[in-house]
Design a protein around this nucleic acid. Structure first.
Lengths: 341, 341
DNA sequence: CAATTAACTTTACGCGCGTAAAATTTATAT
DNA sequence: ATATAAATTTTACGCGCGTAAAGTTAATTG
């Protein structure tokens, strides 16, 4: 492209020989113009380096091409990874994603929604904080903006829900643990941030009952999103006091498991499935870091790619006019066997 | 606030009894109007729930209140943490931050800059990919947009650079390791993504020379941003082949150290400073996860808060008109002693 | 108190693009 | 080739707000 500075669409219309309304159509949706004119526009675009002013574009359009992606805590690599995945799908589908983190704070989550409102997005992919979320605020937001809820469900709001099948997660890994050693105790937070945690506990109870074992749930204190530290402190106490009735511990999530592994290290308790190991520890989530714990963590992993794809596609079809009733999709996880259990 | 739907600033001017230009001033900078009128406006705001249309606002304003925050890889908790910190500082200073990740990809980094250009930001806080970055593209961007470079410096571009003093980092932790045991070998990537790595190697060589020890640098193969896996694989080979000439290993960064710890675990090599341990391992960065490795990782930590604060304030003063010559600020790190070394 | 200054109101225009309507050209089908 | 449909051009207006200029009101000073 040459250095020609094009100031606005009108000027670009002149140099490209295409009328401004047609250009407007093209920038809104390149496939909406004849292929002939499209190639002419794109040839001119190569030459002249022009990009429409997004503020002027979005001012009058009823529907922008913006898509908001909101996760509860971006510094958790699990959410960072799924956010990256969603972001790239949005771009591939021709949308402009903007990333937001609620930073684990319900008040901030509401602020994010307010900001999002003013962006007039075509749609939003929202992973709510969960228990702590302001339900009313979420509900009002979903009424105004096409919103797809993922990861953690809150009632039947928004267009649909896409997440993992927490019952299957826990049932599957509990089954594995029972078949390969002592039945697991369940290690969790007493007041978990995320409603998935309740499903996992319930699923553990069901599975243990089914296998004819006595369940043993250890719920540790701790608020907030510092799960590793909660797991470490809670682990110390539980190990000290002998709360665990078997040598196998299934954690409600991987970050809790990571903290528990640290507690084990600090107490000089060897973890793994070898004969020289005192206990087995397993997690749930397939956290990006779980491969690099010592020992590497046995876990059941979200199908990141499938969750992202299902969520993104559901939103896009809704944006493009398809009306479908509210629906919940829960995808199965995959067992990842490593040394810890 | 009542349900009164205010459609635009003109309507809000009527119901509030304030003229539209004054309102415009207020929304641009609340402190630019008399306190009396300000309270009147804010009282009306409580009643009527109106927010100016950001697209119309930004269309004609020479300078928006937008600030871009760009990091190389958001799924690295180190960058996620610093991004969160910067984001909150922007909000506190009255700016509207937007978060971007280059996803470790130079081509995507350039795309992010293009996107950012069209947002007409007042300023940008940019942590470049480093070695792989398109220098020319960065330079051109910095000429057009007030940009503060942080974390990883690329020539003398932008308004200024703020980051950590990598020489101090490595000198300090090398000193510690020498004083408390065998002098360290240096474990690094052969082709690091980040220019800080070269400073750290050089600083290691300097420090070892100063202490009268023979340096020993082990550079492992591996491309990309999967540092843990590179550290693990490289660690396996180095341990197998006996590359390490002493029992102490200083890693170029924490993620590499995390991979090395996993390799040690897999090779059944006990890490730590106890008598029963074979080697000591230390990292550099103060990675959020370093607390939860087994053993917990001794490292030298970035001063996250000071780096963020210095970077943000430097950008804001530049935005607000202060012209100052290009300057590089490098902040010292703090040694964090844990069990690994 | 008048004089000065700062803040506000009134008026008016423009930003860059969306979009509607009518006229015209081009493609597709018969 | 002609009829029909689809795409494009021309013309024109409006969106919501920034912003400049001139006049008016309110605060500050001596």
């Amino acid at each position: 492209m040459t250095g020609n500075k094009i100031r606005n669409m009108e000027e670009f219309a002149r140099v490209s020989g295409i009328s401004r309304p047609t250009l407007s159509k093209y920038f809104n949706d390149p496939s909406s113009v004849r292929t002939n004119t499209r190639t002419r526009i794109e040839a001119a675009l190569e030459l002249h380096d022009y990009r429409p002013n997004i503020y002027a574009m979005n001012q009058n359009r009823k529907l922008t091409k913006n898509v908001g992606v909101v996760v509860p805590l971006l510094s958790d690599p699990y959410f960072a990874e799924i956010a990256r995945n969603l972001e790239q799908r949005c771009i591939a589908a021709g949308y402009r994603p903007t990333l937001f983190s609620s930073h684990g704070d319900p008040a901030f989550e509401v602020e994010v929604l307010e900001t999002l409102r003013s962006l007039k997005p075509a749609g939003v992919l929202l992973a709510p904080l969960g228990r702590a979320s302001d339900r009313k605020a979420l509900e009002r937001f979903c009424e105004d903006v096409p919103t797809l809820i993922f990861d953690s469900s809150v009632d039947e709001i928004g267009l649909a829900f896409v997440g993992s099948d927490n019952f299957q997660f826990t049932a599957h890994i509990t089954d594995y643990l029972c078949r390969t050693g002592e039945p697991p105790c369940f290690f969790e937070m007493k007041t978990p941030a995320n409603p998935n945690a309740h499903r996992r506990r319930q699923s553990y109870l069901n599975a243990m009952k089914e296998f004819g074992h006595t369940p043993d749930v250890i719920s540790v204190e701790g608020e907030g999103w510092g799960f590793e530290e909660i797991g470490r402190l809670g682990g110390h106490e539980a190990l000290q006091q002998g709360y665990f009735s078997t040598n196998t511990i299934l954690c409600s999530n991987d970050r809790l498991a990571i903290g528990l592994l640290t507690a084990c290290y600090e107490k000089n308790i060897r973890v793994g499935r070898g004969d020289d190991c005192a206990i087995r520890v397993a997690g749930q989530d397939g956290h990006p870091h779980s491969r690099y714990t010592c020992p590497p963590l046995t876990t059941i992993s979200h199908n990141y790619d499938a969750v992202s794809q299902t969520a993104a596609e559901a939103l896009f079809t809704a944006i493009e006019g398809q009306v479908s009733p509210w629906k919940s999709t829960r995808l199965e996880g995959k067992l990842i066997l490593r040394d810890s259990a």
